[in-house]
Write a protein that binds this DNA or RNA. Structure first.
Lengths: 402, 402
DNA sequence: CAGGTTTTATTTGGATCTTATATTTAGGTC
DNA sequence: GACCTAAATATAAGATCCAAATAAAACCTG
C-alpha cells in the first residue's frame, strides 16, 4: 500500500477504495447498503474496502446509537463516516500586497481564515514565503490542527504559471510573485495563477462548462474554462489580454499599461482626464494623485459626468473582451472577480448595452463575482479539493493518534 | 465479456487487454517478452491476455517460422501480431463542394482513397448522406473489405459541432452541412468540425501542445489545440473568428463576409480593387467576375503590384490572428491548412515581418500545412485512430471468417 | 550426436479479490 | 414469544495475478 508501485492486483482495490472514499466525501454518514448503490459493488466488497479505509485512517465507524433513520427494520446497518482528523487542505492567495489563507476540511468546510497585508517588494521571495508560512501556521492553530494535518496546499500567485508550477523567466515581477512556495509549505503543494483559481472558484459555485473569469483589480488576468477544463498554455500564458490594445489600435506593438485591471484603469484615466475635462466634476475636489478607483465608482453613483464617462469606457472595454471570448472560445459567461467586483455592476450594465443583440449567436452573460476579494483563496481551496477528489488514494491520511 | 456491464473483477482484464492491444498497434509482431516490458505484467499473464485477444479476434499468432531475429538462442518465442482483418477505420471529409474519404487500417496505413465533387445545395441533406455512403462503399471495395469491417467512421463537416455531434440550429447552412451522417454510416460514427479535424491532423504530424490550425480556403475556421486538447465550446463554436472584423473596426457589430477564408478574400478583394487600382496590373486582363484566388497568387509570384498588395493585406490579417491567439491562448504554432496552403507561403512571409519582435514573449511560428487539401480527411482518420487507441476494448473486431 | 546452454512456454501453488449463496444477527411487529 | 425484515457475517466458488518450478524448443559445443 505504498502507492508507488502498486502491483496489478492491487490496482482494483485502489480504484474501489478511491470510489468509496469519493462517496464518503459527499455523505455525512453512510451504510454499506448506500455505498453499494453508489459504487455498484457487492456488500461483501464494500465492507472489505471500508475495513481497509478504516485501517488506513480515512474512515471511522459510527458506534453511538445516535439518530438511526425513521423507519428502521432489520439488523442495524454498520455506519461509517469520513474521519475528520484525516486531514485538511490549505488555500493561499499570495498576492502582491496581501496574503490570505483558508484552512478547510476535506468536504470544503472552512475551518479558519487569516488575512494579512504585506509589502512584497520589501520582503523579497524569501520574505513572502516566510510570511506565508507564519500566516498558515496561525490559521492551522485557529482550526485546531497543525502542519502534519495538511494533505495539500494550493497557492495562487499573480503571475503566469506553467504545468510544473513555474513562471516564465522573463519577468522579474513574476519571479518575485512565484516565490518558490512549493519547497516550503506543507503537504503536496500546487502553484497556480491567481486568475485561474478565481475561475475555478466561480466554476465550482455555478458550474458552466465555458466561463471566463476576469480578475481585474490592479492587474488584469483571465482564467479561462473551456469544455469544463482550465486552459493553461505551455508557459501558463493562456488568459493574457495583451491583444486588446494591440488590436484596437490597428497595430501590433503592445502598449504600456496594457495589463492594467479595471481598478487601475479607472484610477489612471481619472487622474489624466480630470485636468482636461471641461465640465464640472466632483473628482476635481480630490488632489490628482490621491484619486482612487473607489472615488471614481463613488462619484459615478452620485451621477458625476466624468466618472460616468470613465464607467462607459470601462464598459466598452469589457464588451470588447466579452465579444472576443464569446466568439473565439464560445464562452457563455464572463465573471468579474476580485475586490473590484462589488462595485463593478455599473460597468456590467454599460457593457451589456453594447453587446450586439442581433448577431445571431448567443451572447455571454456578464456577472459580478459574489466572492469579493476572496475569489482566489476560495479557488485555491476548491482546486485542492478537486485534486484530492480525483485521486484520494494518492494521499496519506494523518495517522490515528493514540 | 460483453463489454457493457463488465463486473468489477473483469475490469482488470479489460485494462490489461487494452494496454496490450495498444502495444500491438505500435509493433508489427511481438513476443510475450516484449509485451512484458511494455506492460509490466508477468509472462503468464501476458500469454493469458494474448490468448484472450486471439480468441476475441484482435490478435493472431504468427506461425510461419519466417525471419526470426538475428541472434536467437533458446526456445523460440511465440509471436503475435494485430489481426489485419479485425477491422478498418473510415475518415470522411464532407465539404460543401466535395467528398473525400480514406479507408485505413488500425495502424493508420491508408488502404484506399476516393474523392468526388458534389453540389450540396442541389443534393440536400439526404443526398449528401447517400453520396457519402456510395463513395465509402467504393473505397471499401478498393481496400478489399466491406461495411462490416468498419469499426468507426469520423466525419468532418464545415459547421460548428458540439460534443454530441450536433450543430447549432440557427444556420440553415450548418444544418445542411451536418447532414445526419451518424445514422447512416458504418460502425461507431463521430461528427466533427472540419477545422478541428485539420488541427488533429497537424497535431499528430508535429506534436505540440498548443497549436492553432486555420482552415482557410473558401470559409474560415480554426481548430484550437490548447494543453494538448481540442477546444470545442458548448455549441462547438470555439475557433470562430468573427471577432477579427468586430474589433478592428472599433465597433461590435459583425460584418458581412467576416467568415471568409483567405481564398475567398483574395478573390473578392481582387475583383473589387482591380477597378479602382491606378497602376498597371496583370489581373486586369481577366474579366472581373472570373478572377480566382489562384490568379491572385500566380500574379503575385510574377511580381504584379496589385496582387502583392492583396498578399500584404492577407499577411496583416494573419498577423493579427496570430498575435491574438498567441496572446490569449499561448499558442506556439499557427498552421494554415486546406487547399490554399500550397500557395500561402508569401502571405506567411509577410505576416512574419509584421509580428512584433520585441514584445518580450515568444511569437508563434507560422507554417503551411503539408497535407494540402487533404488535411481534414487525414484528421478524420487520425481522430478515429485516437478514439480507438483510447479504448480499443470498447469495439468489437470483425468476427473470424471460417 | 549427446549433452549443455539459453530462452521461452507451461504448469503449479498461493494470494487476493469479487461474486453468489447461505446463515446469523439485531431489532421491530403482531 | 413467534414472526418478519434488513443487514451483517460466513462460506464457497470463480477469476485474476504473481512467483517459482518444470518442461520444451532451439542453438551451440565437443
Amino acid at each position: 500500500m505504498d502507492g508507488t508501485t502498486a502491483s496489478s492486483t492491487q490496482l482494483l482495490r485502489q480504484i474501489n477504495s478511491g470510489a468509496l472514499l469519493r462517496f464518503a466525501l459527499e455523505e455525512q454518514v453512510f451504510t454499506a447498503g448506500e455505498a453499494m448503490g453508489a459504487t455498484g459493488l457487492t456488500r461483501a466488497t464494500v465492507l472489505g474496502v471500508c475495513d481497509g479505509l478504516v485501517d488506513a485512517g480515512w474512515l471511522e465507524e459510527v458506534t453511538d446509537g445516535g439518530e438511526a433513520g425513521p423507519a428502521l427494520k432489520g439488523r442495524p446497518a454498520r455506519r461509517y463516516r469520513l474521519r475528520e482528523a484525516a486531514g485538511v487542505v490549505v488555500g493561499l492567495d499570495a498576492g502582491e500586497g496581501h496574503l490570505t489563507t483558508i484552512v478547510a476540511d476535506l468536504r470544503g468546510r472552512e475551518l479558519a481564515k487569516r488575512r494579512q497585508s504585506i509589502d512584497s517588494h520589501a520582503l523579497g521571495r524569501a520574505g513572502r514565503v516566510a510570511g506565508a508560512q507564519e500566516l498558515i501556521r496561525q490559521a492551522l492553530a485557529d482550526a485546531g490542527c497543525d502542519a502534519a494535518d495538511v494533505l495539500l496546499t494550493v497557492v495562487g500567485v499573480p503571475a503566469p504559471v506553467d504545468a510544473d508550477g513555474r513562471s516564465p523567466g522573463a519577468g522579474e515581477f513574476w519571479q518575485l510573485m512565484n516565490s518558490g512556495f512549493d519547497q516550503h509549505l506543507d503537504g503536496a503543494v500546487t502553484i497556480e495563477n491567481d486568475a485561474n483559481l478565481a475561475a475555478i472558484a466561480e466554476h465550482a459555485q455555478e458550474p458552466s462548462a465555458n466561463v471566463a473569469t476576469l480578475l481585474s483589480g490592479e492587474r488584469f488576468g483571465a482564467g479561462l474554462i473551456v469544455d469544463g477544463r482550465l486552459l493553461r498554455g505551455r508557459r501558463g500564458g493562456a488568459g493574457e489580454m495583451r491583444f486588446l490594445d494591440i488590436l484596437s489600435d490597428s497595430k501590433l506593438e503592445p502598449e504600456e499599461g496594457t495589463s492594467d485591471g479595471f481598478g487601475a484603469l479607472a484610477r489612471k484615466w481619472a487622474r489624466t482626464l480630470v485636468r482636461s475635462y471641461g465640465g464640472d466634476t466632483s473628482l476635481r475636489r480630490i488632489p490628482d494623485e490621491d484619486i482612487t478607483a473607489e472615488d471614481v465608482f463613488q462619484s459615478a453613483r452620485e451621477g458625476d459626468p466624468l466618472a460616468l464617462d470613465i464607467i462607459a469606457r470601462l464598459g466598452a472595454r469589457l464588451a470588447r473582451i466579452a465579444v472576443v471570448l464569446s466568439s473565439l472560445l464560445d464562452i457563455e459567461r464572463v465573471v468579474i472577480a476580485g475586490g473590484i467586483s462589488r462595485a463593478i455592476e455599473p460597468v456590467l450594465e454599460r457593457a451589456r448595452t453594447l453587446l450586439p443583440a442581433d448577431s445571431g449567436l448567443p451572447l455571454p452573460d456578464l456577472v459580478a463575482s459574489t466572492f469579493g476579494a476572496e475569489a482566489v483563496v476560495h479557488g485555491a481551496i476548491e482546486s485542492a479539493l478537486t485534486q484530492f477528489r480525483r485521486e484520494p488514494m494518492a494521499f496519506l491520511p494523518r495517522a490515528i493518534r493514540r
